[in-house]
Design a protein around this nucleic acid. Structure first.
Lengths: 368, 368
DNA sequence: CCTGTACTTTGAACCGATTCAATCCTACGC
DNA sequence: GCGTAGGATTGAATCGGTTCAAAGTACAGG
């Protein structure tokens, strides 16, 4: 009656002793029952039940067995990033489908600060890692490398041939977006960029800042935009670039600054759909019509963008595919490091149109 | 040179031997360096590096330490459910915030079939479980109980006082929705319900089907709707109920059936925001205006609903709160089982208005 | 020169299972 | 009655660490 909380949960050896058989037999009863004689099996099971033993503790098994059957997903963003960012959601959906099919579990690894993250990566019980290198990719790779488990990086920039990575050709996608807009006749552009690095910059940034940007997706996309624009003879040095944090506040600030100017842009190049959607709302609140007054193209191809009003023209990444490929890379790691570039697609929807006529009084009137 | 793949990774005892110290000391070097003399620590670290040893393997540590520092999140839906369903996303965001703050990791546990799920729950390396009992809640609870770890159920119906659960008062919320609509003057209603049980039903269902529904949220919400409507003297037996799978196809089918009738409803009671949003789109495609022609109220309070056009009037659940409370329940399990009912809120936005005038030629004209 | 104090290290016992070679039975063929 | 094939059990080693009481060490104080 005196429920002493000293009563530990029974373990395999307790059952063995109580049943008068060896540990090995009890282990077999639970894992390979066909090896144990019917009668013994039943007795062991009964005794186990009586002792409140529900089967082998996974911790013990793990130690012996090696394979954990779980994939760690790591990032330097807070964990909630996986559930709130549309890009992450889609990639995760792809990852979970593949993991499900392979019968593997998923472990989310993240942390408020770098120190905790290091610890979490070090101690995660997984067979491999998928890294979301949205931010601080190199650091993340360094940390994970220590762990000596297979891993693959998503959206990792740079050209480190020693790490496996899956991604897209950011510059090529961006070029498509810029050419589409310039082809429509736009001449006054602005770029809404993602973060350049760990929050050193803010608001308007220069082309040099971009060239030195730590985060390569950001850098590559701007480079792509400018390549595309340059082909149409547009003076890219005059194109303002605003760094945002991909959130409501900073995007609005950027839009406000941009449209307070004497000659606001007629076309916006947004580095993510999320940004584009926020910008569209901000613009509409200012009484501007999209696409009649301002055109905007996003990047990513999230459902959010497709459902926006108007539906967003955007560069769509094969997000689900990326997720699936990542899982495959962990479950059957290739021999050496391998970089995969998945194809992307440019989807024209309702957020882009030719610029308003007579909207460029002093446009440099480059032919066409 | 001959890279024999026999070369196992060095372990703690190898390092100890090579460094000529005890295992305990090496362990301390990595876990409580302040206890080890500078000089020794350095030497051990050097040797470890030489051997390619990166620190203690979590599997070994686990066994000894007990605490895993991870929470399992389980459901009978496919894993991708966590990343694609707006309700789950919000709750998960709450869970991750709380887990992050507590430095705990998250492990997603799910599976295609029940058997695999059982195994996954049995072998997940976690300190406790949070159960999403969207579907098959009782089965999930049964499976988890075996594991003898703290767990808390979300959205669990029934009144099993032996399991900890966190939820809302479904019936009360539904009543609010019904009363709002009836108060506005609507007299012709229809209910879009979630699944009653494991896909036995489909399309239109009867009130008796509901009374026997396995999934209690579904049942409770209908009961709440009817209570609310009854207070306004509305004949609830004449209100059609359509079961949907909370997806595009089944919701559209239901809407089609409903609005093909001679006297289509002027007000829709949807059991989830997702459904409501899909229904709104379907209705708008039919040329019906919301809320002028048809009013609709959702359930949940997801961002999706708030961002819809028009913004959805809905019963909002404190989803983030639910997530946080669940984590708290696992990290500091209460002594006995405990049921928590969190408060909900009714938010009136743009999807509801009085019914179109003259729209109810043969309405039963109940006063008011 | 002896003691007491404060650090460092060591040893050995666990943690909870899995594994597999070796042993033990049984029944069967001859 | 005997050798033996084969299935059922057992024992003991292992997996990779953590922990903590006890043993060492060094040094200041008496």
């Amino acid at each position: 009656m005196a429920r002493a909380n000293t009563e530990r949960i029974a373990k395999l050896s307790d059952v063995a002793r109580a049943a008068g058989v060896s540990q090995g037999t009890v282990s077999n009863v639970f894992n390979r029952p066909e090896l144990v004689r019917e009668e013994v099996r039943k007795r062991v099971l009964d005794i186990a039940a009586g002792l409140g033993y529900r089967g082998p503790d996974p911790r013990g098994r793990l130690l012996r067995a090696g394979k954990v059957n779980a994939i760690g997903i790591a990032t330097m963003e807070p964990v909630s990033y996986f559930f709130t960012d549309p890009y992450a959601q889609e990639v995760m959906a792809g990852i979970s489908e593949a993991a499900d099919a392979a019968g593997a579990g998923l472990s989310l690894v993240s942390a408020a600060n770098a120190e905790t993250l290091a610890w979490n990566i070090q101690t995660a019980v997984v067979d491999g890692f998928i890294l979301f290198c949205i931010e601080g990719g190199d650091e993340l790779v360094r940390l994970t490398r220590e762990r000596q488990l297979p891993f693959v990086a998503l959206a990792l920039g740079g050209d480190d041939r020693t790490v496996s990575a899956i991604g897209i050709d950011d510059a090529a996608g961006a070029r498509l977006a810029a050419e589409h807009l310039a082809g429509l006749g736009h001449r006054r552009f602005a770029v809404l960029s993602m973060e350049l690095d760990d929050g050193r910059h803010h608001g308007r940034v220069t082309r040099e800042d971009i060239a030195e940007a730590l985060y390569s997706s950001t850098r590559e996309r701007v480079i792509g935009y400018f390549e595309g624009l340059a082909r149409f003879g547009i003076d890219v040095d005059a194109v303002p670039i605003f760094e945002t944090l991909n959130d409501e506040a900073t995007v609005r600030t950027a839009v406000d600054a941009l449209f307070a100017a004497a000659e606001p842009p007629t076309a916006l190049l947004a580095q993510s759909d999320r940004m584009a959607v926020i910008a569209m709302r901000a613009l509409q609140e200012r009484g501007l019509r999209i696409p009649q007054d301002v055109s905007i193209v996003g990047f990513d191809g999230t459902p959010e963008g497709a459902a926006a009003n108007p539906p967003l023209t955007t560069v769509v990444q094969p997000m689900r595919e990326i997720g699936r490929a990542a899982v495959a890379a962990i479950l059957a790691p290739p021999d050496g490091a391998r970089r995969q570039l998945l194809p992307l697609e440019f989807v024209i929807r309702g957020s882009t149109a030719p610029p308003p006529t007579g909207a460029s009084p002093n446009a440099s009137a480059t032919s066409r």
